[in-house]
């Protein structure tokens, strides 16, 4: 059973996401999204995962800066107006109910919060320091036991950056 602080953080994240969807100005939406990311970082820290908390907060700050620049450059404001029709609400409720049923069935078999299964990870915890000599267990898993995953992650990042270069290039682009 998770503690009350975690529920508060999750409530804050949901409220932030709802405000981001429903607010009128884009810059307010971006800042509400940052609230979600910051609360996620605090939640990681609360669940004793400082490695992920550091990564989350740093990436969140950088993404916030980039999004604010992108919002402040774009001048046109798109106003989305529409009415909630009966059919739309009906379809939405139907999908939410279906999703809840499947989520309940899928999550019923999970081990309870805070007590993982520890079949493979028990071996990592016991022999991580002995086999790799790395005092930080997360790094020893990332770069020794599961180094293939890190290689794949690096490849994904490389490809994404290459794609950004190709889309955003200034040389060789035809004038509109």
């Amino acid at each position: 059973m998770p503690e009350i602080e975690l529920y508060l953080l999750i409530t804050l994240m949901i409220v932030g996401a709802l405000v981001a969807v429903h607010t009128r100005y884009l810059i307010s939406a971006v800042i509400s999204l940052a609230v979600v990311g910051m609360a996620l970082a605090v939640a990681f820290l609360y669940m004793q995962a400082p490695d992920i908390a550091i990564t989350q907060i740093v990436v969140e700050v950088l993404a916030l800066v980039i999004l604010i620049i992108a919002v402040s450059i774009g001048k046109e404001v798109v106003d989305i107006k529409g009415k909630w029709e009966t059919l739309t609400i009906g379809v939405t409720v139907l999908f939410v109910v279906i999703f809840a049923i499947f989520a309940y069935r899928a999550l019923a078999d999970l081990p309870p919060f805070g007590s993982p299964l520890m079949t493979v990870s028990q071996r990592y915890v016991e022999e991580g320091l002995k086999q790799t000599g790395s005092a930080n267990l997360v790094t020893s898993i990332l770069l020794d036991f599961r180094a293939y995953d890190t290689l794949g992650e690096a490849t994904i990042l490389f490809t994404a950056i290459l794609g950004a270069f190709a889309v955003l290039r200034n040389i060789g682009r035809k004038a509109k």
Partner: peptide, 18 residues
């Protein structure tokens, strides 16, 4: 200090970029 304390290559690189 990625192998001694929390952190590592990814967050450190993002901090330098920031």
């Amino acid at each position: 200090h990625g192998h001694l304390s929390p952190g590592g290559g990814f967050p450190g690189g993002v901090i330098i970029a920031s």
